[in-house]
Simulated assay, not measured.
Amino acid sequence: MTTADEVRTIEADSVPARFARGWHCLGLARDFTDGKPHTVRAFGQKLVVWASADGRLNVLDAYCRHMGGDLSRGTVEGDDVACPFHAWRWSGDGRCARIPYARRVPMRARTASFPTLQQDGLLFVWNDPEGNPPPDGVTVPRIEGATSDEWTDWSWYSVTIDGANCREIVDNVVDMAHFFYVHYSFPTYFKNIFEGHTATQIMKGVAREDVRRPQAEGSGAPKVLGQTSVATYHGPSFMIDDLTYHYTDGDVESVLVNCHYPVTSDSFVLQYGIVVRKAAHLGEAAEEVARTMGEFIKIGFEQDVEIWKNKARIDNPLLCEEDGPVYQLRRWYEQFYVDSTDVSAEMTDRFEYEIDTTKPNAAWRAEIEQNIAKQNATAESRPV
């Protein structure tokens, strides 16, 4: 029997030894099409990525099954990658295609290959600890703005996060309150929907008047008033956010991609990209707006990174009514770490939860007004 005075302890199992089943984005496809093999460290191993002569991207385990040479330090020969040690040539399906000095290729000359997907200028790789191919129903939807002349090109960013597990970033899907304290946004509406392999966050917010933003600096510059966001994880690691910023001179429609892939159990590569619709009121400034928004979002992610690097892993978070459905999200997320036969209905059945923002909004509005009053008092006390 517990009492009110009993100290709450933090419970935390070790991070999972396996890596999530699903499509993971490795970055912009064009970064791998220069005719050279590329090293990618992911899923606890080293991979080699290269483009075949027809432009198709391939991903294999980087170590040659002959004598252990590093294929990512080899060369691309036509459709194949050649080992720098003995020039064994490996095709994208994992088979040894040729041994220059041998009469025949050994029958068992196979290495680990990963299914790939090139879509919207991005490269995806499928990871499954059980070795199964991607099911037909598990897909990544197309992003209209990524292939339209009416939108900008990708502004893309990447950073390696050490000392944190991937679950830390996924928790943000349900964490309404951190947007106010960490990202200086004032959430006025917040709802989550989980179903199948997707997890959605719907948020509306207004800009905090007590925090200066780069967009608001300069005389006559348009100011951001707020944002509307519908962000969905499609699988364990790829989120598409239909994000509209509301400025004093009009709305700016954008699509933000927030994605990651694990390097080890306690490190991951965080990537995000943004495309912006070339609205009439933006004129020739659309590309610059995309870059500015990307840099602003970068600041927000850096704020998250500082939290992740210094926080404790906690499996039994102590929650209040205004916190989001953390336990339900983690139950949804668990489906990607168990065998496919162990995925249960409670992990995939539709679940909806809308947070009552009445109390948070009242408290935050009072805090903002107090901060503004302090700022005004400080400004008035400065000598002229």
Rank of each mutant, 00 (worst) to 15 (best):
E288A: 12
V40W: 08
V125C: 13
D120L: 06
W332C: 00
D210I: 00
C64P: 03
P141I: 10
E209L: 06
D162S: 10
T3D: 15
I368H: 00
V384A: 15
P129E: 06
Q370Y: 10
W23L: 01
E346T: 11
K223M: 10
N258W: 05
Q118H: 05
Y184P: 00
D93P: 09
I240V: 14
A102G: 06
D349W: 10
K223C: 07
A42Q: 07
H260L: 08
D266H: 04
V230W: 07
D70G: 05
L26S: 04
Y247S: 01
R89H: 09
H86C: 08
Y353K: 01
G35F: 09
I193K: 13
M347Y: 11
K359S: 01
R313C: 05
L28M: 09
G35K: 05
T111G: 12
M347K: 04
K191L: 11
W308I: 02
S254N: 10
S113L: 04
A12V: 14
G131H: 11
Y101Q: 14
L123H: 06
V289F: 13
V173G: 05
A362K: 09
A29C: 06
T160I: 13
N132Y: 14
A373N: 12
E380Q: 15
V182N: 03
D80P: 03
I240P: 00
E321K: 11
V170W: 01
E354M: 05
E11F: 12
Y63S: 08
D210L: 00
P37F: 13
V326C: 04
E168Q: 13
Q328H: 15
T200P: 02
I161K: 01
E144H: 13
E346W: 07
A53V: 11
A312V: 14
D54C: 04
S229P: 05
L71D: 05
R104S: 13
H281I: 07
K311C: 08
Y233G: 01
D210K: 00
H38G: 01
A87H: 13
T358A: 09
T264F: 07
T3H: 13
F179Y: 07
K278C: 08
D54S: 12
P100C: 09
L243R: 02
A286Q: 04
C259H: 04
A379W: 01
S344I: 08
I143N: 07
C25F: 09
E6I: 13
L243A: 02
G250F: 08
F296C: 04
F19W: 08
M67I: 13
K36L: 15
I202R: 10
S340P: 05
Q215R: 06
Q370D: 14
E354S: 06
D5N: 14
V48A: 12
K223V: 13
L225I: 06
L329Q: 04
A97N: 07
Y353N: 02
D349I: 09
V125T: 15
A53G: 08
I314A: 08
P236I: 10
I274E: 02
I368F: 00
L117S: 06
Q328F: 14
T2R: 14
E6A: 15
D5M: 11
D241T: 06
I368P: 00
D339V: 03
P317H: 05
G145D: 03
Y261T: 07
L329M: 08
T39N: 11
G68N: 11
E253P: 04
D339I: 02
K311V: 10
A312F: 15
P325A: 10
Q370H: 12
